[in-house]
Design a protein around this nucleic acid. Structure first.
Lengths: 207, 207
DNA sequence: TGTACATCAGTGAACGCGCGTTCACTGATGTAC
DNA sequence: TGTACATCAGTGAACGCGCGTTCACTGATGTAC
């Protein structure tokens, strides 16, 4: 469905860039399929003609890359907001992990695309050109590491290598989110207990 | 590249079905992209014309489904072969998990496609129409459950709910395999230790 | 205040391509008589 | 043993479609004089 769109005033052409990314996100969220983010479909959705996109993105792939970056910033913002102000280290750990899984469950298509392909080493999660005020993926991961270290220092965890334990825990949460999406019809045990088991055992939280 | 192909003798037309699946698998393994399994590309690869495929598959999607089924049987065969004859329950558990991760690492594209989309409830992993002699996905999962139960019964694991622990362990292995593929450039700690930590902590193997 | 002009956010038509799918067919081979 | 015929594993040409990308352009708006 084409939208009526009034063109941006001079000097504000860059606004269209955001509108394009939003349109691409919306297409992904509706269809669940990365392939439905076509240049032409994005243009239709944004209410512009296809060639207009080239003023803002080099090619179709650049749109997808922008979608992935935006999704990463969304996730990282959700995580930092969730744990903000929580003092108890174990609660901080649980809340952060729960927010991570919440994002994966509530925005399954976004989440899948974020991790669905080999990403460029320069990309958001590892060493991107990050906009001011945004965290790198590595910095976000560091929050998890610090969280586990906090538990250990408070005597609430037996972790002796918080970085390694965080890597293991992240991997496990990633798989927990992913498998449940892939296998909705598997006779999963209680999700809450699974989540607890993964966090407590892998972060070595004391009983 | 087109192959020279001699047509199958009468009554053996069904052979082409396997050749088509093999061709699709080869395309996937080479490009790593599910989208490169197009009906026409598969036909070219198999050395036949595109319409010939319709004698064996209803549409393009049916080819992909057959690829996924074949990949599942490959994985399950690899698992059962790996643990065959191993008596020690902890060794059995470790070997089985190691074989699972080995498949995911060595055949990353196959593995990704297997779990990359919402699968039909009727499909291989849960309740497929399984060829004789092949295990269901659920039956394969049961091997992991039994493996953990074996450890517990031998006093080598503290698991009190082998099914739930198996589900958690499987999820974690799935994520471990997937994240490493997605984030090759992440500064992962030692993989062997990570694997051990995941298995031992989630299956509650005693130190 | 008025006007010429540069800027720039877009448009519209066209291109070649590979795709999935359809249709009518061909030609080798086994079988019935 | 010879031949007509049914079977069936494929072929070849064609279709309409949406795609990414290119090109030359338009027309509103701010700015210089």
């Amino acid at each position: 469905v084409n939208q009526v769109r009034t063109r941006n005033p001079r000097g504000q052409g860059a606004r269209l860039r955001d509108e394009i990314v939003d349109a691409a996100m919306a297409l992904l969220e509706e269809s669940g399929r990365e392939e439905s983010i076509t240049l032409r479909a994005v243009a239709r959705r944004a209410g512009i003609t296809a060639p207009s996109i080239y003023a803002h993105f080099e090619d179709r792939d650049a749109i997808l890359a922008a979608v992935i970056d935006a999704a990463f910033y969304e996730l990282i913002d959700a995580l930092t907001a969730a744990i903000d102000g929580i003092e108890d280290p174990v609660e901080r750990l649980h809340t952060g992990c729960h927010a991570y899984l919440g994002f994966a469950v509530e925005r399954p298509h976004r989440y899948r695309v974020m991790f669905g392909r080999d990403r460029d080493p320069e990309s958001a999660i590892v060493a991107p050109a990050v906009p001011a005020g945004k965290l790198t993926g590595l910095e976000a991961f560091q929050i998890l590491v610090d969280s586990i270290r906090g538990c250990a220092e408070a005597g609430r965890s037996d972790s002796v290598d918080p970085f390694a334990d965080a890597a293991v825990l992240w991997s496990a949460m990633h798989g927990f989110a992913g498998l449940q999406q892939s296998l909705e019809h598997f006779p999963w045990p209680d999700r809450v207990q699974m989540e607890h088991a993964i966090i407590d055992r892998l972060a070595r939280v004391r009983d």
